[in-house]
Simulated scan of single mutants.
Amino acid sequence: MAVTVFSFPDSDAWLHRLTADFQDRVDESRKSGRTFHVALSGGSTPAPLYRRWATLDLPWEAIDWWIGDERWVPVTDPQSNEGMIRRTLGAGPGDRLRLRSWHASEDPEEAARLYDKALREALGDPPAFDLVLLGLGEDGHTASLFPGSAALEERRAYAVANPHPGGGPLRLTLTYPCLDAARSVWFLVTGGAKAKVVERLLASDSSIPAARIRAASQRLYWVPNG
């Protein structure tokens, strides 16, 4: 699928445009009276964005925040995506962040099954997110869909446990059937080190996991010198 590119000279411009576009999407959803469902990306790239969003006058009671993937570590661990999101997006006043945690069980396989169940109950079958935010690794991975990993071939479940081929903590991730059903997918990418993999994404190089997403609307918010 074609990816629409938005390129920015610096991180400030990137943050400003992403914030404006996000507010527009939320406003559109509110006009229809629906809850806005968004899946968040982890890692370090979106942290400044989430800090900015924490300061906004959003209809927090009408937004359900999900997490696109997670490392199977305690939320207090520095590697936890949920922990990062709670420290940034959840840093505003009050208990207003309706965040769907992966940690609904002490067993990761069961936790993934319960996330799948929650997705179906809240968003339908297939679950149609209003917006999914994704990162892009230098190896072409996105969420926790890594080259050569078993989750790339999953066609029935919307959330699975997926070991990282290189080792490290077990990952939990949304799958292609879930990502493909999203109304909009935004890749958030900064830094010159990502230039080659960005080229491969835009060329629809299906050898990298990120380029295998089939959502109808896909955008790349890209800071080459970030």
Rank of each mutant, 00 (worst) to 15 (best):
G92Q: 01
E110T: 11
D107S: 14
L97Y: 02
R100N: 14
A104R: 15
E109K: 08
R100A: 13
S105G: 10
D95N: 15
A91W: 00
A104K: 13
G94P: 07
E106D: 15
R98I: 02
T88D: 05
M84P: 04
M84H: 12
A104M: 11
L89Y: 03
N81A: 09
L89A: 05
H103Q: 12
A111I: 04
W102C: 09
E106W: 14
A104Y: 01
I85F: 05
G90Q: 02
R98Q: 13
E110M: 04
L89Q: 05
E106L: 15
E109V: 11
S105I: 12
A91I: 00
W102I: 05
G94C: 07
A104H: 10
T88S: 08
R98G: 01
E109N: 13
W102M: 09
P93T: 08
D107G: 11
S80K: 14
D95I: 07
M84S: 14
G92P: 01
R98L: 02
R86G: 04
L99K: 06
G90M: 02
G94W: 03
R87T: 12
L97M: 05
R100G: 03
R96I: 08
H103Y: 12
L99M: 08
L99G: 06
N81Y: 08
D95P: 04
S80T: 13
P93D: 14
A91G: 02
R96Y: 03
L89S: 07
I85C: 07
G94M: 06
E110S: 05
R100Y: 11
R86H: 07
W102N: 09
E82I: 10
D107M: 09
T88W: 01
R98W: 01
A104P: 01
D95W: 05
R86C: 04
I85A: 09
G83K: 12
L89C: 06
S105F: 12
S101C: 07
E110R: 12
A104I: 05
S105D: 14
S105W: 10
I85G: 10
S101R: 07
L99Y: 05
A91Y: 00
R98P: 01
R100L: 13
A91P: 00
L89I: 02
G92L: 00
L99H: 05
G83M: 11
W102V: 05
T88L: 02
R96K: 11
R96Q: 09
E109S: 12
A111K: 03
A91T: 00
H103F: 13
G83C: 11
R98F: 00
E109I: 06
L97K: 04
D107I: 12
R100T: 04
A91K: 00
R86T: 07
A104T: 15
G94N: 07
L99Q: 08
E109Q: 13
R86N: 08
Q79W: 08
L97P: 03
E110H: 07
R100Q: 15
P108H: 06
G90H: 03
E82F: 08
E82R: 12
D95L: 10
G83H: 12
I85H: 08
A91C: 03
R87S: 15
G94Q: 08
D107V: 14
H103C: 01
E82A: 10
E106P: 15
P108S: 10
Q79F: 09
T88M: 02
L89P: 06
R98C: 05
P108I: 11
A91Q: 03
E106H: 15
A104W: 03
R96T: 11
E82K: 12
